[in-house]
């Protein structure tokens, strides 16, 4: 299908799209339309829901399949090699961290929660993360910038909806923060007005006297944009200015004005 679909054209395809009854090129055209059309997305969701009802039944899936699934889970979650990262904490200047090679990334992708990520995006994100990690620990601007407490006022469902809306915002920028070995991740989304949200992560829970701290890299400055607590969940932050990268460090409770820690995860803000 060579052309973009009009709303009327796309509408005609919604039923067959929901039933996977389109050829690949038509499917792609419909999905392009769905990106910007909430009305059509809502209709597709209704069709998918109805189609799911057609498969109602009392058939029991084989427990042998569950045994296989459970066996596959034994290797996950991926080992969080924080000990080695902490061991690398420098007293002054940390050495740069080597970027993982594509083969290593492919291996992680196949066994970890990163499965399904686009290869190119992951490789790029990991490479960028490694380079950011290399420079972030060098020195942190001690310019007296205040440590912004994360806007924790918005909780629960409201925050969930806000984060979801931000993710769906076509102008939002997704930031994939990754550890050097790719095992630890945090995904953030940033809006043009500077509001940002930590949407998803697998950061391990810290002891009560430790805190995750989020940093924005603006030019050569590393600016604290929030404390995430010891067990981050979805969180809001504000990072104004031309933010080039985000990074998260493990700090003492209450946070620090300037960090000499290596980031646990980092990722570049890649604007279109």
């Amino acid at each position: 299908m060579a052309h973009d679909l009009t709303h009327a054209e796309a509408s005609e395809f919604l039923g067959v799209y929901a039933l996977d009854a389109l050829d690949a090129d038509e499917r792609e055209a419909v999905e392009l339309h769905l990106i910007d059309c909430g009305f059509c997305r809502a209709e597709v969701e209704e069709h998918v829901e109805v189609a799911g009802l057609l498969s109602s039944g009392v058939v029991h899936a084989p427990m042998s399949v569950w045994d296989r699934i459970s066996g596959e889970l034994e290797g996950t979650p991926p080992p969080l090699d924080l000990a080695s990262i902490h061991a690398q904490r420098p007293s002054a200047v940390p050495p740069p961290v080597a970027a993982p090679v594509p083969d290593q990334l492919a291996e992680r992708r196949s066994r970890g929660r990163g499965a399904g990520l686009r290869i190119g995006a992951l490789v790029a994100a990991a490479s960028v993360a490694a380079s950011v990690i290399g420079v972030l620990g060098l020195k942190v601007a001690e310019d007296g910038r205040r440590i912004d407490e994360i806007a924790i006022g918005a909780h629960g469902t409201e925050l969930e909806r806000t984060v979801r809306a931000a993710i769906d915002d076509p102008e939002a920028v997704k930031v994939e923060l990754r550890s050097a070995d790719g095992a630890v991740f945090a995904d953030a989304v940033m809006l043009p007005d500077g509001r940002g949200y930590l949407a998803n992560d697998n950061l391990p829970t810290l002891p009560p006297d430790r805190n995750y701290q989020l940093w924005a890299v603006v030019g050569e400055e590393r600016i604290s944009v929030g404390l995430l607590g010891s067990d981050p969940d979805r969180s809001a932050f504000v990072a104004s200015g031309p933010v080039g990268a985000l990074a998260i460090t493990d700090e003492e409770a209450g946070g620090v004005v300037a960090s000499l820690q290596q980031p646990l995860v980092a990722g570049q803000v890649q604007r279109a």
Binding site: E12, L14, G15, V16, A18, L19, A21, E46, H47, E49, V50, A51, L53
Partner: peptide, 9 residues
């Protein structure tokens, strides 16, 4: 197909 799904819902 579209009208059938709509009618069912």
């Amino acid at each position: 197909i579209r009208s059938g799904l709509r009618r069912m819902r």
